[in-house]
Amino acid sequence: MLDPRLILFFAAVLFSAGVYGVLSRRHLIMLLMSLELMLNAINIMLVTFSRYWAGRSAGLVGAHSGQFFTLMVMAVAAAEVGIGLAIIVAIYRRKHTADADAMTDLKN
């Protein structure tokens, strides 16, 4: 069986890549993609925990709740991407740029 620590390490690397992307990228779409990366890293973790540590005695639903949660996160992420992309398109139409640093309308 695969060592769960290996999978968790992979998820941590994926999450860090996402954080780095959010902090370093200026393009809104890149930000959104980095966010997706972080969400999926979390999903991997949830599935791993569920698979290796959830007790059998918790019953059918209890034993698989981590995996159900993953499905939930994916659904929410899909909705988020839908709204996020729509906002980005709207902003681009207005400002002709998708640079996050240009979004300074509330300053001063």
Binding site: V19, V22, L23, R26, A100, D101, M103, T104, L106, K107
Partner: peptide, 13 residues
């Protein structure tokens, strides 16, 4: 309050 989202995220992280 710089107004850049990035800066807030840095602080956050």
């Amino acid at each position: 309050q710089t107004g850049y989202v990035r800066h807030y995220l840095y602080a956050f992280a």
